[in-house]
Design a protein around this nucleic acid. Structure first.
Lengths: 355, 355
DNA sequence: TTGAAAGCGCTAACAA
DNA sequence: TTGTTAGCGCTTTCAA
C-alpha cells in the first residue's frame, strides 16, 4: 500500500468513523492514485450481501413492464442497489434459467412481476431462502411482500362506465389463461355482468395473447358477428390488445367509438397517442416498481419482518374511444341491442389512486 | 457432505469429465437433498468472472431501447450470462453511479447504449480495464467493439424518398445536441440538402428532447409558419418525436400526409399502429443488442483480441405518412412550394439489412 | 486508532 | 479417480 495498513483501508472505504483524519486522507489518496476499485465478490463473500436485486419480468417489450422497470431502477439506484434483469419473454425455458441463476445468491432478493409464472416454478427461489416480493401476483408463503393493483375494481369501473353509456352487449377480450391477473379480471367481469344483468353470449369472453396480435385474433372472431349480436363495447386485457382490436375494427370499416366502444388496461403512453385516444384503466406501473423495491429493502434491513401487502387502486381514464350508445353519427344502426338501453345514471367511478 | 469428498463436488458442479459415474451420482443426490446452491461470490472470487454483463441504457422507456434490451437478454441468456441493467434515465447523476457500480467488478464487461453519455464519463470504466462494447456510438480507444447503424444512410434514404415525392421544403427535427447520433444525422441531413439543392431556412433544423414532447415543441415552432414557408415534409429524430409532431399537426388541423409528410426513425412497433402508419427508418434494434453481446463474449473468450466494428444498414420503411407533394385530396393549397416540384424518379433505396 | 489473523465458499494445482 | 491445500479480496473480531 501507498499508505501503511491493510484492514484500515476497509474501514476507510466503508466509512467507519474510527479512522484518524490523517490516515483516512492518506488512504484516499492512494486509492485515487492506484485507481483502486474494491472487488465486490470478495466483499459479498463475507458480508453475504451482493447489493443487487433481481427482477423477473414477463415481457419487457410491453410498455407497462417497461415502466415497472423504470420504477425499480429509480428506487434501487437511490439506495445504491443494482438490478439484475430477467426478461422471461414469456418463455418457460428462460424462466427456469432465470430462477436458477438468481438462486445462486447473485442477488439479495427478487421482485417477481410475471403473473403467468406458475407458483411451483418459484419454488427454487423459495428454497434458496431468497426474499421475494410479488407485483400483481397473489401472495404465497414464499413472498415477503406483495404490491398489486385491485384488478376487480379496474374491471368494475370499466364495465360500469360502459353500462352508464348505455352499452349492454359488452365483451371481454382476455389475456393468457395461465395468468393470475387474467383470472382475476375475468372473474370480476363475469360477476359484474351478472350483477348488471348483462348477457354474455358465446365468444363474449375469451383468452389470448396479451399483445396486439391477440387483440387482432379476438377481433377477427368477434367483430364479424351479425350486427345484432356483435358487442357494442369491448374491454381488452391490456392496451396492446386494445390496439389490435382497434386496428382490425378499422380494417373492417367499423368506427371507434361510434360503432364500437373500446376500453384498454394499463394506460401505456401510446394509449393517449392513438386517435381516437384510448379509454383505459390506469395501473400505476412505476409506483408498483418503486414500492416493490421499498418493500424488499425494508425486509433486507430487517426493519420489517411481517409479510406486507400494498394495494393500489386503478384509475379509469376516460378518453375518446368510448361513447354513449346510439349517441353519435356514423352509427350503422347496429347498436340498438335487444335489451332496452336507457342509460342509467350509474356514475363511472374514477377511483382515486390512494395507496 | 452426504457423499465423501470436497473438491470433487466442485468437479461435479463444473462438469469436469474426470469424475466417476458413481461418485458423480452420489454428489448430485446430496446436492438435491441438501438443496445446495453454489455461492457465486466465492466462485467469482477465484475465477475472476461474474457471469454478468452490464448494460448502460439511455432511456428504457423508449421502445427502441427496450428492443435492444430484449436482444441483449436473449443473447446473454443463451450463453448463461446475466444482465445488470442501468437505465440512466438521461440523468447524469445516475450515469455516474452506474459507472461506479459497474467499475467494481460486478460485471465481466459492459455494453454502452447511450449516445448522449460523454466519453469522459466512461473513463472510470476504462480504468477498471472493463471490456466495453458500444452500440450506436463512435468507437474510442476504450471500446473492444462497436455495433452501430449507418446513420448517414438512414438520413440519406429518408431525404431521397421525400425528394422523390416532390418535396423541396424538408425540415429535420433533431434530438439532444449532446447525442452522437444526433450529430451524425444532422450532418448527414445538411449534406444531403446541399447536394440536392434544398434550402434550409431558419428553423428547418432544430434540437430537442428525443420524446413526443420534443416533437410537440418543434411542431409548435414549425407548423404555424405561413403556408409558403412551412415545410411540406419533416424528418424526425425518432418515432417518438414524429408522434409528437403528428399529434400537434392534428390539433392544428393539418392532415398527414396530405398537408405534411412525416418520417420517423427507429421503427418502434407503434409506428405501424398509428393512422396513418408512420414511414420510418428502421434500425435493427434487437440485432444490435444480440451482436453486442456476441462481440463482448468473443472478447471475453479471448477468441477475438482485435477491435471489431459491426455496422448495420438501416432500412427505410415506407408507410402512409409520406405522400407525393400535391398528389392528394385534402390539400389546403399550401403545399405548392416556390420551387418547381417535378418529382424526379430518384429511387427511394430500401437498403438491405446486411450485416 | 491501527494491525494481525481468521475465514467467507470456491477453484485449481498438486499428491496420492 | 479423488483428497489436500493454498489462496482469490474482503470484513471483522481481537490485541496492541
Amino acid at each position: 500500500m501507498a499508505g501503511v495498513s491493510v484492514a484500515t483501508v476497509s474501514r476507510v472505504i466503508n466509512g467507519l468513523p474510527v479512522v484518524s483524519e490523517a490516515t483516512c486522507q492518506r488512504v484516499q489518496d492512494a486509492i485515487e492514485r492506484l485507481r483502486y476499485v474494491p472487488n465486490s465478490a470478495g466483499r459479498s463473500l463475507v458480508t453475504r450481501r451482493t447489493g443487487t436485486i433481481g427482477l423477473i419480468l414477463a415481457d419487457i417489450t410491453n410498455p407497462f413492464y417497461t415502466e415497472v422497470v423504470r420504477g425499480v431502477e429509480l428506487a434501487a439506484g437511490r439506495r445504491g442497489l443494482s438490478v439484475l434483469l430477467y426478461d422471461t419473454a414469456e418463455d418457460s425455458a428462460r424462466e427456469l434459467k432465470a430462477i436458477e441463476l438468481l438462486g445462486s445468491r447473485q442477488v439479495d432478493g427478487v421482485i417477481v412481476c410475471a403473473s403467468r409464472l406458475p407458483d411451483d416454478r418459484l419454488a427454487l427461489l423459495t428454497k434458496a431462502a431468497l426474499p421475494l416480493v410479488f407485483v400483481n401476483r397473489a401472495p404465497t408463503s414464499a413472498a415477503v411482500g406483495t404490491v398489486d393493483v385491485d384488478q376487480e375494481t379496474g374491471i368494475r369501473d370499466a364495465v360500469t362506465h360502459l353500462y352508464g353509456l348505455g352499452h349492454r352487449r359488452i365483451a371481454y377480450v382476455g389475456g393468457p389463461p395461465a395468468s393470475q391477473v387474467q383470472a382475476r379480471r375475468l372473474t370480476a367481469f363475469r360477476a359484474m355482468a351478472r350483477q348488471l344483468g348483462l348477457k354474455l353470449p358465446a365468444g363474449y369472453t375469451s383468452n389470448g395473447s396479451p399483445t396486439d396480435g391477440g387483440g387482432r385474433e379476438a377481433a377477427h372472431r368477434l367483430l364479424p358477428f351479425p350486427a345484432a349480436r356483435r358487442p357494442t363495447a369491448i374491454i381488452a386485457y391490456n392496451d396492446l390488445v386494445a390496439i389490435g382490436i382497434a386496428l382490425v375494427a378499422g380494417d373492417l370499416g367499423l368506427t371507434i367509438p361510434d360503432d364500437l366502444s373500446l376500453v384498454g388496461y394499463d394506460d401505456i403512453p401510446f394509449s393517449a397517442f392513438l386517435r381516437p385516444a384510448l379509454t383505459t384503466v390506469r395501473q400505476p406501473a412505476r409506483e408498483l416498481g418503486e414500492q416493490a423495491v421499498a418493500m424488499l429493502v425494508r425486509h433486507l434491513d430487517g426493519s420489517a419482518r411481517r409479510r406486507r401487502r400494498l394495494r393500489f387502486a386503478p384509475q379509469l381514464v376516460i378518453r375518446a374511444s368510448t361513447t354513449r350508445l346510439n349517441g353519435s353519427a356514423t352509427s350503422q344502426g347496429a347498436d340498438a341491442g335487444p335489451q332496452r338501453s336507457t342509460p342509467r345514471p350509474l356514475e363511472a367511478s374514477s377511483a382515486s389512486s390512494q395507496k
